[in-house]
C-alpha cells in the first residue's frame, strides 16, 4: 500500500513506530514515555472523578472523551509517570479519529514499539483496560452520530 492510500490512522501508526525506533532500550523507552506524559496536558482535579476512573489498572487512570465534529477527542491522566505516558500515547493516537475507525482498529503497533508486554489481561498496568474504555467511548459516540444522521 502506498502512502497515499494509507488511512489517517495507519499513517499515525507508522509515525509512532518510527518515533519509538529511536528508543531501542527499555530505559530510553520509559524515559520517552514519561516525557510524553509530562508534555500532555493533565486533567484538572475536578475531572479526576470516580466515574472517569478506568477500572482494572494498578495505578489510577482517568479518561474522558468528547465528540469534536465527527471525531473523538480523548484526554487522560494517571498518578503514575510511566502509566501517564502510556495513556497519553493512546489518547494522542486515537484523538482526531472517527469512532468507526477507532472501533475497527487493532492496537498492534504496541507490539512494534515494544510495549506489548503491558497488555497482559490482569494485574497489569491496565493498558488493556484503557483501550477497552477508549473503544467504549467510541461506540457511544458512533451511536450518537448515527442517531444524528
Amino acid at each position: 500500500m502506498s502512502a497515499i492510500e494509507m488511512s489517517a490512522i495507519e499513517q499515525k501508526e507508522k509515525e509512532l513506530i518510527q518515533e519509538f525506533a529511536r528508543y531501542p532500550d527499555w530505559e530510553s523507552k520509559y524515559k520517552h514515555l514519561i516525557q510524553i506524559g509530562e508534555k500532555t496536558s493533565h486533567l484538572s482535579e475536578d475531572q479526576k472523578t470516580e466515574s472517569n476512573l478506568v477500572r482494572g489498572c494498578q495505578s489510577q487512570v482517568w479518561l474522558i472523551a468528547d465528540l469534536d465534529g465527527d471525531m473523538v477527542q480523548y484526554q487522560a491522566d494517571s498518578d503514575a509517570a510511566i502509566t501517564r505516558g502510556l495513556v497519553a500515547l493512546l489518547t494522542r493516537f486515537y484523538s482526531g479519529v472517527k469512532p468507526a475507525e477507532i472501533l475497527q482498529h487493532q492496537p498492534n503497533f504496541l507490539n512494534d514499539i515494544g510495549l506489548s508486554q503491558h497488555l497482559s489481561p490482569t494485574r497489569s498496568n491496565g493498558l488493556l483496560a484503557m483501550i477497552r474504555q477508549i473503544k467504549i467511548y467510541a461506540l457511544a459516540f458512533q451511536s450518537k452520530l448515527s442517531a444524528r444522521n
Binding site: 520509559y30 494498578q58 495505578s59 498518578d79 509517570a81 510511566i82 498496568n125
Partner: peptide
C-alpha cells in the same frame, strides 16, 4: 509511584509486588 518503581525494578531483574 509504586507502579513506576516496580516497572523499572522489573527491568533490573527484581521480582516484587506493587499495587
Amino acid at each position: 509511584h509504586g507502579m513506576d518503581a516496580g516497572m523499572v525494578l522489573d527491568k533490573k531483574g527484581f521480582a516484587l509486588r506493587t499495587g
